[in-house]
Design a protein around this nucleic acid. Structure first.
Lengths: 206, 206, 206, 206
DNA sequence: CATGAATGAGAATTCATTCAT
DNA sequence: CATGAATGAATTCTCATTCAT
């Protein structure tokens, strides 16, 4: 007997998740150009042709990956950044949490690293809109929190947009270059040192 | 009459520079996988076959680009980091100078961004050795200077290797993500804010 | 509905045979260097890309062709050489049969002609091993039969390895050089004359 | 002061010999398709471009190589085959001498092996004429001598054209297949065994 | 829906030949 | 004449995508 439409939908959604997960992994390992649809299919444990039942092409697949991960990041951020703690505390929580997340999925940070590189190739003309959305959905909460911390005098007065971008860049960059063996071997220390640099700077303040 | 060996050498050297320059440009725009030998040839204003007169293949060409740029970076670093000023001053000079360089050669920072991504593909088994060399030649002087600044009490005590990597990552990351329109429009302010974050942290110290 | 694995296997096997047959033909016409993958595809009546679905590259394709033909030759030889007739009779049958086979498949002898030329290019470092195997699988039965004929006094005492090689070389060489119009026009006579030279020599024995 | 025309001619001829020698060597190692003009130039110790002062292209170069070697072979044959000894003795001398020559230039035999393969590619439409000439100049003396040996009853009555071709093929084939280590290690024995097979056959005649 | 076979456009690479000096 | 730099046509090979079952 044929499946009900809901069953079909459910199967379809589950398959999509399977594919999305595989695509995300392959993507963080290789980037857009170098990732191969065959690898995605293999990792998702489905046939190569099956991918194309769910996604018209590589581009559309990656758009979905991007959308999903951006949404996830947005939710995570919202959760951490909208508590009723002091702004500076919320910021520290957010970044510490993200660094800890890197630890559990060591290639996770690469997602954002690659995202900004590939966004124009994947979205073509609508890339600007996507970046705009990213700014609204993902940066905005961060920016607002930075602003609050500026307002309550806990951090220095700075253009909050620029601050957010610089801070975010520095944060993504930290695990991105050179080997991460130190990060993996002494994660606690590494994370605290990274937090210190970002929040307190390297100078000794007397 | 044939050209003299010196003439040939000169031609070869000039042509190599031409190719290296073109390859560097294309590389910083596209990365290893996406750059096409045809683009390099076109940008260098030579025939596609001529590339192969000078470089056995794409990999060897990129190895030469890497070697050249790493060498250049090493020399620049040495110059700035070995003055007789106080360590903290030298560090600030170095990073400020690098950020100013980014301003004049907007794709320059991408080189390092891509380098760490592609090093394994380009060098295969010897990638680890290359990274080792990079650490020795390029990180070492920085690390030493950090150590000196720690020793004279101007910066906080931290594992200098980790510090160097974190700092470098943050520094590369800052201009690497999202649009750089702000950077291009208000370079002076942007640079000073970046310097502040890196050296003083974002917190207000009373 | 997807094909069953057996169906796929069958398709794969059939396609491989198609390709192997085409490759063999093109190879015996041109040799390794000059054969073009495009010709093979065309002769096999498949797309150029499909070749690479089945064989990683030209080299691997030829390795399979070699393996197949060597195996076939081995089986043919075994069949003819292991009857319970007198050794000399078996030898004569074997070579006469091979010459008749040449007649029906005029390019067949070229396979061995080219094989020894290309084996080093196709197998690189393992070429020696392949030749060793060839000697074991294909020469051995012949050698053994020669030895038996020596033992029963029907042929002259000679080092059987050298004898096999010389004999085989002479046998391959006979149809290999100059035009074969005579061979095609008077196959029976040609074959008998070749057999005479090889087995009785050209001298008249009184 | 400029060279005299004769001097120029002499230089030209010497250069040509240099090139011809190099081309012959490369050819016997690789065959027509696989030999590279660069290798010829290198072996001849001249510039790549210089080749083209002497030969319009690869084809013309090889035609000259062929012509030269065929001429040499013809002269050698004439010398050995036109003594006043018995025909059978002359034939044995000729082939023994050729086998000894192989010993000194181990790839020499390949020349004829490749020649018949490449003649059509190198000469295109005139290939038939070239083969005709080869038959006239190189085979004819051999054929005549075979005929004489048939006439004086020392060898069996056979169609002399076919005999020549079969014999020649067998003779070229002997050193051509499988490794020639035995040939190089025990040349005397190898040659005598080869002579025996060709002239006396492998059967024991009582 | 599911699948792997099939495909061809496109990229890397080779190498005989031409050309400027 | 001599040379090596320069070139592009021809070839191998890759991989996203389509197709038959």
């Amino acid at each position: 007997m044929p499946r009900t439409p809901e069953q079909n939908n459910q199967i379809r959604q589950q398959r999509k998740n399977q594919i999305l997960g595989a695509a995300f992994e392959v993507y963080t390992e290789k980037g857009f150009q170098s990732m191969e649809m065959g690898d995605v299919a293999q990792k998702a444990d489905i046939g190569r042709g099956t991918l194309y039942h769910y996604y018209k092409n590589k581009t559309m697949l990656m758009r979905d990956v991007f959308a999903l991960k951006l949404e996830e990041a947005k939710i995570t951020a919202a959760k951490t950044l909208s508590t009723d703690q002091k702004p500076i505390i919320r910021l520290e929580s957010f970044f510490r949490q993200e660094l800890i997340a890197h630890l559990h999925h060591p290639l996770r940070y690469r997602f954002f690293k690659y995202f900004f590189e590939d966004v124009h190739e994947v979205y073509a003309d609508s890339a600007e809109k996507v970046l705009q959305d990213f700014e609204t959905n993902n940066y905005q909460p961060l920016m607002t929190t930075f602003q609050q911390a500026i307002d309550d005098g806990t951090i220095k007065a700075m253009n909050p947009t620029r601050l957010t971008q610089l801070f975010w860049g520095a944060f993504i960059g930290m695990p991105a270059y050179i080997d991460n063996s130190d990060f993996l071997q002494n994660p606690q220390e590494w994370i605290e040192d990274a937090m210190t640099i970002l929040f307190d700077g390297i100078k000794k303040h007397t």
